[in-house]
C-alpha cells in the first residue's frame, strides 16, 4: 500500500491489490499518509497457498477493480 502511495505522490496513477484480511491496515496506512479515502482493489485472503486456477480467478477480479480505479478513481472495495 505504501508503495502505491509513493507512486501517487510522484504523480503516477497507482493502486494496490490487498487481500481482504488486510483492508483495515491498508486504510490505516492511507490515513497516516494523508490519503484516507485512497481506493484499492480487494481480493480474498490468502495468496501463498492458492492453486493456479484460483490465482487466475483472483487476477480477473483484481484487474477489473484496478482498471476501474485507475480510470475513474472509483473503488469497488467500498461497495
Amino acid at each position: 500500500m505504501h508503495d502505491a502511495l509513493t507512486a501517487e505522490k510522484a504523480g503516477v496513477a497507482a493502486t494496490a491489490i490487498i487481500t481482504d484480511r488486510f483492508v483495515p491496515t491498508a486504510k490505516a496506512m492511507a490515513t497516516v499518509q494523508g490519503m484516507s479515502d485512497y481506493p484499492f482493489a480487494v481480493i480474498p485472503h490468502p495468496i501463498a497457498s492458492n492453486s493456479e486456477q484460483t490465482l487466475h480467478e483472483k487476477a480477473v477480479d483484481a484487474v477489473q477493480q484496478c482498471v476501474a480505479i485507475l480510470l475513474q478513481g472509483e473503488t469497488q472495495a467500498d461497495a
Binding site: M1, H2, D3, A4, T6, A7, A10, V12, A13, A14, T15, A16, I17, I18, T19, R21, F22, A26, H45, P46, I47, A48, A62, C66, L70
Partner: peptide, 29 residues
C-alpha cells in the same frame, strides 16, 4: 520486484515508477 515485504520499496524501484503511466502494487499474503 522488492525482496523485503516489510519495508518500503527501495530507491531503484521507486525510480522505476517514473517510467510508468500507472503502477499496481500487489501485497499478497
Amino acid at each position: 520486484h522488492k525482496s523485503d515485504a516489510s519495508r518500503p520499496a527501495p530507491e531503484d524501484v521507486v525510480r522505476g515508477f517514473a517510467g510508468c503511466d500507472a503502477v499496481i502494487s500487489a501485497v499478497g499474503d
